[in-house]
Design a protein around this nucleic acid. Sequence first.
DNA 1: CAAATACTACGGCCGCGGCCGAAGCACCGG
DNA 2: CCGGTGCTTCGGCCGCGGCCGTAGTATTTG
Lengths: 234, 234
Amino acid sequence: MATNAMFAEVAALAGDPARAGMLHALMDGRALSASELARVAGVTPQTATGHLGRMTAAGLLCVEKQGRHRYHRLATPAVAQMMESIMRVASALEPERPKVTVGPRDAAMRTARTCYDHLAGRLGVALADALVAGGHAEMTSDGGMVTETGVAFLDRVGVDVAPLLDRRGKKRVLCRPCLDWSERRPHIAGALGAELCRQSFANNWIRRTEGSRAVAITPKGFRIFREAFGAQIG
Amino acid sequence: MATNAMFAEVAALAGDPARAGMLHALMDGRALSASELARVAGVTPQTATGHLGRMTAAGLLCVEKQGRHRYHRLATPAVAQMMESIMRVASALEPERPKVTVGPRDAAMRTARTCYDHLAGRLGVALADALVAGGHAEMTSDGGMVTETGVAFLDRVGVDVAPLLDRRGKKRVLCRPCLDWSERRPHIAGALGAELCRQSFANNWIRRTEGSRAVAITPKGFRIFREAFGAQIG
DNA sequence: CAAATACTACGGCCGCGGCCGAAGCACCGG
DNA sequence: CCGGTGCTTCGGCCGCGGCCGTAGTATTTG
């Protein structure tokens, strides 16, 4: 069982502050250039190169070169889930919660942001709560399930979950709770979370903000989330 | 968001080979003494003390002193889940699979062992497969669900899942797929996995082997798993 | 072709942290 | 009370690895 060395290597890669910052910045699922990652990590480009090379060699990241840029992104969803689980353990440590008011940029992050491939922040939690309250979904710490009424409901509001159902449309386990730093409550990840996020962008319910994981809720999205989903946002 | 430093600290703690070995040894959920952990990690007791102290301070472990021994175990299930997720990423690296035949001790490990609080190895996978094949459970990468017939079935074979059901006995999400090193297939973790393991020990279907995570299947257990569950072990 | 940009390769500095030996407590047994 | 065992603390050694400066290689731009 030489697995131990590989385990330690992966964990050690995530265990350096600079690399952790890079991985964290990539948690929205997008690909960032080497210099952008160097900046968020607070190191020089040549240092970043070393880190990125090691993480790529270990299979944490994958690279896509485009012109004179090299875009890096998380190699697999498993990496994002690993980071979530580490975050969950780390947040339990929580030495002291500084109650200082955060800046406006952080406020936007808390309202709505992407978390790898799904929605997080108050919007993510509100949507999860609304689906559960409406009997469209159930969630436990072990996983989440979409009910039959949930399938119909999602179809009605324009989120097509049919491709996710592989057994004659019966209700299936297709979401997964994910809890990260700002809200301490679970929100919807997994297959449904990804599809919900995708459709929200496609239907112009939300829009990316430049240079941030935060997303802006459009007026149309605000109406949909509130009236159709019944989510308590804002 | 000072979370980054805490994230890196937790990951770095898991990223040292000696500490990784200790954590790995604790994955069966039992508590081990400091000297046992020193031995499995291949370091002297005084080095182990340092590691254990740091991991305890960070909330990864908790200590229970008993006489002149100090027993350490994983602080929370979240720590075990974190390790699972790191293992999943690490095993994807997989530099070269040495096809050498493993020793008899490893053979026992592959047959059946505990994985924190549930069963793994061929037994764990076989039980998961049998429950799915019998229509008693469904599993996706996002989570697992016990069906209505599954609740009745488990009750019939002596695994009481009633305490796990909080909504008038309806079928609920109460298992979680977990995949680790030996079998590359998911097995049943989560609330059901823990209960199934607990009952298997209580009913004397399996027994712990001294000084190993491997468990022995008793003749009675063999019969039950094969005839009642329909599991292909063997 | 030259200049600018993005990234990479190399070399050397330096500090953090893992490791152990020696010695000090804590607890149990006779 | 004394010896033995388990664990911890302390001090010092040392090597790994993060960091940057300098310099070199791709690729776009003028």
